[in-house]
Amino acid sequence: MCGGTLETLKALKRLQEHCKVVIFVTNTTSESRSALLEKVQSLGLSVSEDCIFSSLSAAADLVRTRKRRPFLLLKDAAKEEFPDLIQTEKIPLDSPLPTEGDRLDTVVVGLAPQYFSEEFQTAALRILLKEDAQLIAVHKGRTYQAKDGLHIGPGALVSGLEFSTGKKAEVVGKPSRAFFDAAILRAEAVMKQRFGDSDEREGGGPESSLAVDRKRVVMIGDDARDDVKGAIAAGLNGLLVRTGKYREGEEKRAGLLNENGQPLTGFLGTAENFSAAVDCLLLGHT
Rank of each mutant, 00 (worst) to 15 (best):
S95A: 15
F53C: 07
T65F: 02
D84E: 15
D94V: 10
R68M: 14
K67V: 06
S32L: 04
D102S: 15
D102F: 08
E100G: 04
F82G: 02
G160V: 11
D132I: 04
A77C: 00
E131N: 02
A35W: 02
E100P: 03
H139P: 10
D105E: 10
I136A: 04
L128I: 07
L129V: 09
D76Y: 05
V107W: 05
E80S: 07
R66W: 05
T165C: 08
T65R: 14
Q41K: 14
E162F: 09
P92V: 02
K39D: 10
D84K: 12
P70I: 01
K168G: 01
Q145M: 13
E49S: 14
P96M: 01
F120N: 06
I127V: 12
K39G: 12
G110M: 06
G155R: 06
I127H: 00
L56R: 09
V63L: 05
V171A: 14
F120T: 06
A133H: 03
R103M: 07
L104D: 05
F163R: 14
T106E: 03
R142I: 08
V108H: 04
L128H: 08
L43G: 13
A59F: 02
S30I: 12
E100H: 07
G44M: 05
H151E: 12
K90R: 12
C51W: 02
L74W: 01
V40K: 04
V107G: 03
A146K: 09
E31S: 11
V109F: 06
A59Y: 03
F116H: 08
L150K: 07
G160F: 03
Q121V: 09
A146Q: 08
P92N: 05
C51Q: 15
D105M: 11
V108L: 10
A60C: 12
S95D: 09
I152L: 13
Q114F: 03
I127K: 05
G101S: 11
E49M: 11
E162I: 05
G153R: 09
R126W: 06
L125P: 00
S55T: 10
Q145R: 14
R64A: 12
V109T: 03
E170K: 14
F53G: 01
Y115A: 03
E170G: 02
T65G: 02
L157P: 00
L93I: 13
T99E: 13
A133G: 10
L129K: 15
R142E: 14
L36Q: 14
L43R: 15
S32H: 07
F120W: 12
Q121N: 03
E119D: 13
I52S: 07
S32D: 11
G110A: 09
V138Q: 07
P98M: 03
P96N: 04
Q87D: 15
A169M: 04
L36E: 04
T143R: 14
L93N: 04
A156W: 11
L111W: 08
A35R: 08
S32M: 01
K140G: 05
I136N: 02
A124N: 07
G101N: 14
T143D: 03
Q134M: 11
K90H: 12
K140S: 15
S117F: 04
Y144C: 07
R66G: 02
L37E: 12
L62V: 09
I52M: 09
A58R: 10
C51N: 13
V172H: 04
H151Q: 14
K147M: 05
V171Q: 07
R33S: 12
K79D: 01
S30R: 15
S30N: 12
K75E: 14
A35N: 08
V40E: 02
L36K: 01
S95T: 15
